[in-house]
Simulated scan of single mutants.
Amino acid sequence: MKILVTGGAGFIGSALVRHIIQDTPYQVVNLDKLTYAGNLLSVASVSDNSRYAFEQVDICDAEAVKRVFSQHQPDIVMHLAAESHVDRSITGPADFIQTNIVGTYTLLEQARIYWLKLRDEKKRQFRFHHISTDEVYGDLPHPDDIQPSSGTGLSDLSLPLFTEQTAYAPSSPYSASKAASDHLVRAWLRTYELPTLVTNCSNNYGPYHYPEKLIPLTILNALKGEVLPVYGRGQQIRDWLYVEDHVRALLLVATQGKLGETYNIGGHNEKRNIDVVKTICQILEKLAPSESNPNIDTYSCEPGNASCYSELIKFVADRPGHDRRYAIDASKIERELGWIPQETFESGLEKTVQWYLDNQAWCQAIQAQA
């Protein structure tokens, strides 16, 4: 079986490509435009494999996409190519409209034209899997709205979760563009009967994450002794999903999911942003102690502070329209396909911090190309 992965040089896409090549017998065609967030260093470990091929193509380029379909004859499309950084969507929404909406339309149309020409079993087995985000749902009630300043743990409260039936209410240009792409995929299923599936995931973290995102930014800034910026007071809540757990779920949906269905994928790890940053500081103190870091002035730390890294935390002006809480109900994918995350937040985060410590060359190369 041959799988076309769009955005396969990005964070989640590269993890998917590595998983398919390393853990399955399938072939992969990696289609990526190689914008700032896509880098072939993230798939270097599998690039020499005979089952791997790369195409530098913009999904908005209909002729190039048509050629890729014709030349490679994929059995499954897994569509991850997207502009995905919320802050960038606020300052420059045009790229998000172009890639996430126009690009998805172009890919759907070329997939439909290709699919209509297929015959027999190959046509019956073809699937178009669109990978999306929980941000299309907007946000959820926050614990502070229910029990302000109670100190009650998140796991102790009965709060609503995003389900596959949750109404869309996107807040940012990014999430609005992803919502539009979700609707296009479902329209191509209903109108043209293109065999599609949709997944919506919670916040991913793990190796090869682009350095502008919260977790890698915190790790790398801390190591350099630079400010750790936290929006507002850091009370926004996210459900964190280790990227390798996510890609296992994606491949399971692509190969075994029911056509026309949507599956929510979450890590069962609701954490406040400020707690995520503080936990990273604590892990760094264990793996790369601040007292041995020449970039950290340990003499300026508050007396009794267990982590000098946490002294670098600085609260900054909140993002416009910042969603306060996301949380996924992943019971459907567990019930129907048997998927559950293998990593806890603590185990996944420690693996992530260790990866960044061990792969400074990758980080420097990515940042140099930004």
Rank of each mutant, 00 (worst) to 15 (best):
L16W: 12
R67Y: 11
L107N: 03
D139W: 13
N203W: 12
H79I: 12
V86D: 10
E334N: 11
G257I: 00
I3C: 01
A44K: 14
H19A: 04
Q236R: 12
L118E: 02
C201Y: 12
A222H: 13
I366Y: 12
V77M: 07
A222W: 15
L284K: 05
L349Q: 04
L108K: 06
T6E: 02
S45E: 15
N100T: 05
Y52F: 14
G153I: 07
L107Y: 03
D139F: 13
A15F: 01
A365M: 11
Q360A: 06
H322A: 09
L252K: 13
P195F: 07
Y205K: 00
N39V: 06
R88D: 13
A169D: 08
P160I: 08
T6M: 02
Y168K: 06
R272W: 07
E346V: 12
T352M: 02
H268F: 09
P25R: 03
T163C: 07
K314Q: 15
K178E: 03
Y210A: 09
Y36Q: 13
I296S: 00
E55P: 08
I12Q: 13
K286M: 13
I219K: 03
L259G: 10
F345T: 14
C308M: 11
E291D: 08
V247L: 05
A370F: 10
Q147P: 00
A9H: 02
E261H: 05
R51W: 03
E334Q: 12
A361F: 06
G206T: 04
A82W: 01
L357M: 11
E244G: 01
Q367V: 05
I76P: 06
V136D: 04
P216G: 11
I97Q: 11
F315H: 11
Q22S: 10
R238Q: 07
W355E: 10
G206K: 04
S175M: 02
L349M: 09
R88L: 11
L4R: 01
D239T: 02
Y210C: 04
N295P: 04
L80K: 12
R190Q: 15
P289V: 03
E350L: 09
Y26I: 03
A15S: 15
L159C: 06
K123H: 14
Y174G: 08
Q236G: 02
V46L: 07
E135A: 15
Y114T: 00
A330I: 08
N305R: 11
Y263Q: 11
N293F: 07
I101P: 05
A81S: 10
I265G: 00
A44H: 07
S172E: 03
L40S: 11
L118P: 14
F11Q: 05
V86A: 03
Q56G: 05
G234V: 02
T24V: 09
W115I: 05
I101Q: 10
